[in-house]
């Protein structure tokens, strides 16, 4: 494990903590896309099916369980917690996320490393993760104003993706035969989706003003 990968995992973890903190502290999920959160829960459940078949390290196993548990907890809060549920604005969160699920699964049926149950679900989770942020970005753009914690949540998620790219470059340079087309191409696509958000995030940071996305 290199420093970029570790930093990427930590910013990923941090993003989830920021989101949980926001929901817990404000008892509100305003500005948060339930659809994106549900997609992430599906992503983790589909990808970590290997929790039962492959052991990589204690670190890996621990993080997988944390990601599955935290993503389910967030979805639970938005769907079930009486106060949080009330703050969910479903009229803003209208992205047809099932289309992303269907398209990702279809793509995984054709593009995978091996035609096995685990590998197809692994590829599916990679494709779905690449586009899972879309409902969140659309919601932020629609509501215009982004509260600080939600902005930081998306910022850390984007940082995690950027650090994973550095991790792949490092591994490509240091490990013989490091080729992972599916993960790397999807990862670059995923990171590119944040470009617009990052642009406005840095502008607001530079001007010390509130983050606003143009309609």
């Amino acid at each position: 494990m290199n420093i970029f990968r570790l930093a990427g995992d930590m910013t990923h973890l941090l993003s989830i903590l920021v989101l949980l903190l926001k929901i817990y502290a404000t008892k509100s999920c305003s500005g948060v896309s339930r659809k994106t959160q549900e997609l992430y829960a599906i992503v983790f459940l589909a990808r970590y099916l290997d929790l039962f078949t492959d052991f990589i390290s204690v670190y890996n196993t621990f993080m997988k369980i944390v990601f599955i548990a935290s993503s389910l907890a967030i979805v639970w809060c938005i769907r079930v917690h009486p106060m949080v549920k009330r703050s969910y604005d479903k009229d803003l969160d209208t992205f047809r996320h099932y289309l992303l699920v269907a398209a990702s699964f279809l793509l995984a049926l054709f593009l995978h490393e091996k035609f096995t149950f685990l590998e197809i679900f692994w590829a599916f989770s990679i494709y779905l993760e690449a586009v899972a942020i879309l409902p969140q970005l659309v919601l932020l753009q629609r509501s215009g104003n982004v509260d600080n914690l939600t902005g930081q949540y998306v910022f850390f998620l984007g940082a995690y993706r950027g650090l994973y790219i550095l991790n792949w470059i490092y591994r490509y340079l240091t490990e013989p035969r490091f080729t992972r087309w599916i993960a790397c191409v999807s990862g670059v696509v995923q990171t590119a989706l944040y470009a617009d958000f990052f642009y406005y995030y840095f502008i607001s940071w530079k001007n010390n003003s509130k983050l606003k996305l143009p309609a």
């Binding site: 990968r5 995992d9 990923h12 492959d54 990589i56 890996n60 990601f67 490393e113 991790n167 993960a183």
Partner: peptide, 10 residues
């Protein structure tokens, strides 16, 4: 050779 561990990332 040793089979590489495929999915060692998260």
């Amino acid at each position: 050779g040793v089979e590489r561990k495929y999915h060692d990332e998260l």
